[in-house]
Design a binder for these strands. Structure first.
Lengths: 161, 161
DNA sequence: ATTTATGCAAAACTTTTGCATGGGA
DNA sequence: TCCCATGCAAAAGTTTTGCATAAAT
């Protein structure tokens, strides 16, 4: 009881949080597991592996079980809050926050660092696809792959590693 | 020996296959494991889980081991032939072929069917990102999420499931 | 009060590793 | 011939399940 209020408080009042609103509207209960996972995701700005979520959730509230964390990640994925993507390994995905339903980044294939960006200019394409495929589109993920300046070397030489 | 020739034959002569060329140029050997995984990926048009690759490879050549299949999937990912993406479950990724370094699809979040498309119009954005972030970009993945016509119901009613 | 969601712990999978050996160049 | 890549089998992780109980509405 008291912890639940605390969790809500850490999320800066449920009324202000759009994800909490969505959860409620979809008929899901505001539980500690869900609020804590949400808190962790928002604190990380949404780039985090399941293992990290697990670890951080446990740190905040050791009473929350592993299974609930996985169930929550799946629920949040279904609701479109987050999207799993494979960055470091194919064994476990990295979850990214889908702010406003979309997310864009450039991943360096060498060092795995990533750079987020806005202004993807997908509005026209979204509209075209909706019309042509008759699909009601709610969001998208756009990722670019490349090699960052650091990994290409300090002298910009295009050396092969 | 003989099987290797057979594997190459099934891939319609190595000389014609751009992936085989890339493998060679990068200094990797053309082994049965690699050629067979490539064959499976190309036959599936590149949408396939690791479990499916494992199964199909074993059907073609039972002598190829599990570990080699995973090692090959990782290698192909590094080389940019394929990209792991999350479609059905978080337990295992689905690999998509990155033809020409890129891939685009729309996934129905209800039935998980997907629709591929071309003409993403990413050239301008790619150039901008290369300049602004100083990253040498080699490819991209663009996925849209939505609900397809079938899942929205036959009468186009926007019913909630 | 009613259910939904949970925690637990085991089971079920998936992926990775280490090392001797085979096969490609 | 050389040494990269493999197969094997075990180890290491990760995710899921079943069920009694807690807790959110």
């Amino acid at each position: 009881m008291r912890s639940l209020v605390e969790a809500k408080t850490r999320l800066r009042m449920s009324a202000d949080n759009p994800h909490i609103q969505s959860l409620k509207q979809a008929g899901y209960r505001l539980t500690q597991a869900r609020l804590t996972v949400l808190e962790v995701l928002e604190a990380e700005r949404g780039h985090i592996t399941s293992a990290d979520v697990l670890q951080k959730v446990e740190r905040i509230n050791p009473a929350i079980g592993r299974a609930s964390v996985f169930r929550t990640l799946e629920l949040f994925t279904q609701l479109g809050f987050i999207r799993p993507t494979y960055i470091h390994t194919s064994a476990t995905p990295t979850y990214v926050m889908m702010h406003g339903g979309h997310h864009h980044h450039v991943i360096c294939t060498e060092c795995k660092r990533f750079f987020e960006f806005d202004n993807c200019g997908m509005e026209a394409l979204t509209n075209n696809l909706q019309r042509e495929l008759d699909v009601q589109i709610s969001g998208h993920l756009l990722e670019f792959y490349g090699v960052c300046a650091d990994c290409r070397g300090p002298d910009r030489a295009e050396r092969r590693t």
